[in-house]
Nucleic acid binder design. Structure first.
Lengths: 349, 349
DNA sequence: CCCCCGATTGTTATCGATATCGCAAACGAT
DNA sequence: ATCGTTTGCGATATCGATAACAATCGGGGG
């Protein structure tokens, strides 16, 4: 076909193959393959010739072919509920940081806080034959569980402490953290504490936080039942604002509110400003997650801090360890790593 | 090796292959392959047999093998500067939404606002032989550009309007948007407008916004040079707070500030509250991006709204169109799609 | 009754790399 | 000089699927 516009690039030009590189460098493909991995035993001279050929042909290695023969794709599947405005993006970041040093690549999927979607996603991910999988959840559909167990790869569950772990775990107890926060508010003198969370049970971590709250008010002998459920997870700033209004209208005597996340806490505080309710004068408000907005808002928001990025790093390390064990034909021992949380008191309570 | 704990799962169990499924169902692998794609012409009876076998063996398709023979990996590489606290997570979301309906999967990479890193990432991504690539930037290193051009796959540049596009474009002019915002502030009566942005030129969109600001103050005959550069992109809320203090100390007569993003605008506003400077009484503050925090803060923040998710969707659609063209052996025409922005005036100005 | 066609299924040849084994040359130690 | 031991490289056989083409079987039209 005649090209009228010489600037038009040929979309379909077939990329060079390793065999072509080998031919040009006058060696076998195996030697090229070795030269292109850092550890390959190749003489300096041949390597130079090969790299020159690679350069001239603009060759890039085809890992998708390599994966087939080496039986290692170099993929790590990562499933998170959502990546927008959430701690999970930091966790994903931490994972990437750790695994990319080993030449592994992340395959990211969103479950939308939905177990069914998670199941489909697990299936779709396994289709890519990842070397390992990190999943931000401790509860799964039976089928998802079965698929994960029989996939023959290391699994890391994170951000939770599952009752019955599939394999490895890197997490903390959301319930305990929430409970600790309520106790701290109690120490500060608050006696009528409410809770604001999402309406659905899809968010298992949110549900755990609610449970921790309930346990705390019960054991402290505080008035119970002051919980507002509002909107689908992840509950937004705007919804936090609406929820605080409901909370106060329904129980005018509440003096403090624990929100399922910093975002809803922030929304609640801003709505209070708008209505002239002093925070913490009229009502104290605490969040969860130590988002940047909590450190920066005015007033600064009391919250539970979790090092999200570190969760990712640790999860990545646990996975690398397991992969290393497998490569050296050791049976990896399922690890459970509990990461710390910290209640941080700021001006909002 | 003896298993002491019967619950321990066999990590190394090799997953079933298509050949095993075929044997069990009493057909050829080709028939299995056809049954597992939706479009395959297989009789209802055989399909049932095959699906039964798949189920019994717990078989999952191995796309990494299929990719080799079909020469289509089903991957779309997506490069974004950062995924944390940014609009790009929404864009990634939009892309996923569109492409997953076609069975494509996103391969996500972070450039950290760094062209060198971008270049490495492009190389790493091409190694996976994606069917297409979407890249959140209009400026690249020469080598990255060359690699993208000769990769033989559709390329979509997004979030920018490059002077010299590689292939397809879905974006808008950051400079124009920023300029429009300054004009709006001018209409509102502000005559001494500053700018707060990151210190590095790595963030090309940030640089464009600054340029738009400069052009606007010049053409309006306003005092120039009132710009503060602070911190590495993405400039954080905290840095926005520090920057506004510098701005006001250095030019006490400024009556309005344009921030490179909503996050820094928010930080600036909160810092003003802390210091008792009224916003917009003492100083008006505007942002960029229409983050949730801007809709929810008090005061609500004037900003430039971009439908980030939609950028992702459109970029995905453009890519799908190109892939479809290629499959039908048409030469895809490079498309440039300009998405709208809107200046939204709120209480902060 | 023959031929052609569509629907369904099988055969064979890749796809592009790497694992494994093997061999030759270089090297080092007795 | 001899005999291991490395070191560097190549030949061959996969890895698990799909493309392309061939084959088979019924049924309808001529």
């Amino acid at each position: 076909m005649k090209q009228f516009k010489p600037t038009t690039r040929p979309i379909q030009k077939r990329p060079a193959t390793m065999a072509e590189v080998a031919a040009r460098a006058g060696v076998s493909t195996m030697t090229v393959s070795r030269a292109l991995k850092s550890d390959g035993a190749v003489s300096e001279e041949t390597r130079r010739k090969i790299l020159a050929a690679v350069d001239e042909l603009g060759y890039v290695l085809d890992l998708s072919a390599g994966a087939l023969s080496s039986k290692r794709t170099g993929f790590v599947a990562v499933l998170v509920p959502s990546i927008n405005n959430s701690n999970f993006s930091d966790t994903a970041r931490g994972i990437t940081e750790v695994i990319e040093s080993e030449g592994l690549q992340m395959l990211l999927g969103y479950t939308d806080y939905d177990m069914e979607k998670e199941e489909q996603l697990v299936q779709a991910m396994l289709t890519r034959r990842p070397d390992g999988i990190i999943i931000t959840d401790g509860r799964h559909t039976p089928k998802a569980r079965r698929m994960l167990q029989s996939a023959g790869i290391p699994v890391v569950e994170t951000w939770d402490l599952p009752d019955n772990p599939i394999d490895h775990v890197v997490g903390f107890s959301n319930a305990e953290a929430s409970r600790a926060l309520v106790h701290r508010l109690y120490q500060k003198g608050y006696r009528n504490i409410g809770f604001i969370g999402g309406a659905s049970r899809r968010d298992t971590r949110g549900a755990d936080r609610r449970m921790g709250y309930i346990r705390a008010v019960e054991e402290l002998g505080l008035p119970v039942g002051r919980t507002i459920s509002f909107g689908n997870p992840p509950i937004s700033m705007e919804q936090g604002g609406q929820a605080i209004v409901h909370l106060i209208e329904q129980w005018p005597d509440v003096d403090a509110a624990v929100c399922v996340s910093d975002l809803s806490a922030f929304g609640a505080i801003m709505e209070c400003h708008r209505r002239g309710w002093a925070v913490p004068g009229r009502i104290a408000i605490a969040g969860f997650g130590d988002f940047e907005v909590s450190r920066c808002a005015w007033p600064r928001i009391t919250t539970v801090a979790i090092d999200c990025r570190n969760i990712g790093r640790e999860a990545g390390r646990v996975l690398l360890k397991a992969l290393d064990d497998i490569q050296h034909e050791r049976t990896p021992a399922p690890a459970t790593l509990i990461v710390p949380f910290e209640v941080i008191e700021r001006e909002s309570t």
